[in-house]
Nucleic acid binder design. Structure first.
Lengths: 251, 251
DNA sequence: TCAACCCGCATTGTCGACAATCAAGCGACC
DNA sequence: GGTCGCTTGATTGTCGACAATGCGGGTTGA
């Protein structure tokens, strides 16, 4: 389903696998999926996945011992995983009290969207400047795939959401700015994905977003950094306003 | 020297004290300086300070046992501190091999400045929208203090650098966006400060920067978000180009 | 009856020891 | 002579136990 892509610029697997050891892993296939290097890595990935998917209720308090035996390890590696999740703002720890799973409210989500707007706007600008011709070609291929996808036409949300993420991942990576990439993909996107699972049924707007994606790619292909940044900012700003509208309706 | 400020919008103490437990501490005075809550907090703060100040040579490899006895604690809390520093990109860890102090090269520094330009531009825009009148007044007072400062006129760099940081801290905080604030102050600025210690003698441009600060404040006071963002972006972009110029001269 | 204090329990923080892994140095073989 | 493989040493990863801290229930006093 997501295999036949030009290998030069592709992410593979689920987004949760992109980050290993605080580093971006661009091709996890060369690493053993099941047996990551250290035990802390395994529990970190498993816990992050469980939190992002909402298997552990957001806002709930959990004990270290409980989690340790749940993941079949000791408290040592578990605490290392917790520390990493804390830096990603997926759990909150207060000394001598315990840990609780982060819950992303509307206000926090909107804050992140302002950050996204700034960072991804810059990413689009840099992508227009530094993306290789092959990367641009891969981006265009991705859009063709999305256009032909039945789910997109049917407004079925889920795949479009993943496809949307894929598009943004590629633009971000196209900036060739590792600090920017790690900040967005390594820290912000996990929280956004968590929110998507929390309130799975919020109306996105695949058709409109698809058109905006196309224009962004056109600007990148034309090496027009100013335009690419502006379009990306408006794209994300629209998404934010869409959320704000829903927020007011649901309160 | 840095005490008599309106208490509503001020940072106190050195920047290293702003972050405790991954949270921003806006008034560390209420917490005990010497005896932070847990042992891991103490070693974390001490180690971060040592790294940022360059007391431990960047790029050097250090052992856990060595660091543990240096800070008078066990390897447990030390490892926790290391994990936090890793998430701040101040140390790099490779499993089963060891840790090395991060060294910030020119390329990485320039990358961060692009991120700064995007984020602080957005911060200036939000500050123009959401800063309280009292915060704006405090910002103006700060500029007056800088103007009267002898060191500024004499182009003495150090205090201007700290004053520059103070100005930027206030604008960032004025955005009233915690995600943005934590990203900038909690993660990026430590690396920038580390660089300042590494190559302490790079020419900044206090006079020019001071004038730019003034115009940014004017835009914020006029509640002109567009202008504030544009000015802040040009301000940081100038600093980046200044670094690029030095980079080419020194190679 | 309510509030404040005290005590026990549960949970987290810390420590030391053991096991797993990697890097380097030496030797043997091609 | 060069390269491959093994062995050794050191360092990190993991585990279990102990100590410190915070929280909640119970009791006592006004």
């Amino acid at each position: 389903m997501r295999v036949d892509r030009p290998p030069l610029a592709g992410y593979f697997g689920t987004p949760a696998e992109y980050i290993v050891h605080n580093r971006l892993v661009y091709n996890p296939d060369i690493e053993d999926d099941k047996a990551l290097r250290t035990s802390a890595d395994r529990v970190f990935e498993a816990l992050q996945d469980a939190i992002v998917r909402g298997e552990i209720p957001p806002g709930s308090r959990v004990g270290e011992t409980e989690l340790a035996e749940r993941f079949g390890t000791s408290r040592g590696p578990l605490r290392e995983a917790l520390r990493r999740l804390e830096s990603r703002r997926l759990v909150e720890r207060t000394p001598h009290v315990g840990i609780r799973i982060a819950s992303l409210g509307y206000a926090a989500l909107l804050e992140i969207y302002y950050v996204r707007e700034a960072l991804e706007g810059m990413a689009a600008r840099l992508a227009a400047m530094y993306m290789t011709a092959a990367e641009v070609a891969g981006l265009k291929d991705l859009l063709v795939t999305h256009e032909q996808d039945e789910a997109l036409r049917a407004d079925t949300a889920y795949f479009q959401q993943e496809g949307d993420l894929d598009f943004h991942y590629r633009v971000i990576q196209g900036s060739h700015n590792t600090a920017l990439t790690e900040l967005l993909i390594g820290e912000l996107y996990h929280r956004i994905r968590m929110y998507r699972y929390q309130v799975s049924a919020y109306a996105n707007r695949p058709q409109k977003a698809f058109g905006e994606h196309q224009r962004i790619v056109e600007a990148i292909e034309a090496r027009d950094g100013d335009l690419a940044e502006m379009l990306m900012r408006r794209h994300i700003s629209s998404a934010r306003q869409n959320i704000e509208k829903h927020m007011k309706e649901n309160t």
